[in-house]
């Protein structure tokens, strides 16, 4: 007969209170495990039952917002996406993502990552600012062109890749997998014309050439973005560009108005909800 007693595990949580603690310390909490319980659920139980001051970031609880990246049993993961049962251990060690300073307990300071991300201009760079400010139609893009960057656009900026990267571990100046993958996401977008501008930032010693394919970023990415692939493709583009072998095409134009298609039965567009001008 199966043991009817509820299973409990120890949550070994890394604690750090700025101004009070000299250095982070481990704290153990017993938690009753329920079927389907995630590490995030477990942290909520710890907070409710024994450590009300425990701090972490979380929001959506479904692997979309990217807030709850943590070092769980030695591997960067999303706490909401990791079931306690799948870890299969009696002790669940939860710490803040490494390679980022600790703000408090399980809260990493992600600002350096986002500053680098911003410096690489992660948006469409084009000359037609009027069209971008007040779009008349969408830019034309084929399904094949979409596939060139779609995988990289699933990034949720959780920082797990940065925590897993051995180069980020030793080099604080290295841009890191997330910002580089996002730069490649826009560089490979047929609507973008910013390759030259981003190249100026990327061609330095802190750019993609610091990556030597340890592959950890892709192994831990909870969304299958594969930053390692994006970085290697970026290097190929940079080399091909230097050798003048890279195809240079103008950015995609605004799509033409549909013609030759029956328009009957399609209601007119609703009135604008934002005032013009």
């Amino acid at each position: 007969m199966a043991d009817a007693r509820p299973r409990t595990v120890t949550f070994r949580v890394r604690r750090f209170e700025p101004g009070r603690d000299e250095r982070p310390r481990w704290e153990d909490h017993r938690v009753e495990v329920t079927p389907g319980m995630t590490v995030l659920d477990g942290l909520w139980k710890v907070k409710e039952q024994s450590a009300p001051s425990l701090a972490w970031r979380s929001s959506c609880r479904m692997g979309i917002c990217g807030s709850c990246g943590m070092l769980i049993d030695g591997r960067p993961r999303l706490a909401c996406n990791t079931q306690v049962a799948e870890l299969g251990s009696e002790v669940v060690a939860v710490g803040p993502l490494p390679n980022f300073d600790i703000v408090k307990d399980l809260v990493p300071d992600l600002r350096p990552m986002f500053e680098t991300h911003r410096d690489l201009r992660p948006y469409l760079l084009r000359d037609d600012t009027e069209e971008q400010d007040d779009p008349t139609r969408e830019y034309w893009q084929s399904p094949h062109e979409l596939e060139e960057y779609l995988q990289f656009s699933y990034c949720i900026k959780c920082g797990c890749c940065m925590a897993a990267c051995p180069t980020v571990a030793t080099d604080p100046h290295y841009a890191g997998p997330m910002p580089l993958a996002q730069a490649q996401r826009y560089d490979s977008d047929s609507r973008d014309a910013g390759f030259g501008e981003r190249r100026e930032v990327l061609s330095g010693g802190d750019g993609p050439w610091r990556c030597h394919f340890a592959g950890e970023c892709s192994q831990v990415c909870p969304k299958g973005v594969d930053p390692a692939k994006a970085i290697q493709l970026m290097k190929r583009d940079l080399v091909f560009d230097l050798l003048r072998l890279r195809r240079r095409k103008p950015p995609a134009a605004v799509a033409e108005a549909p013609h030759g298609l029956p328009r009957e039965g399609i209601p007119p567009a609703p009135p604008r909800t934002v005032p013009e001008g």
Binding site: L150, Q151, Y154, A228, K229
Partner: peptide
């Protein structure tokens, strides 16, 4: 590091295949 033998970008469908 020159983008060979790692495949093109793909649709990420769980379980994720990586480069």
């Amino acid at each position: 590091e020159h983008g060979f033998l790692i495949g093109p970008p793909i649709e990420p469908i769980y379980p994720y295949a990586t480069s």
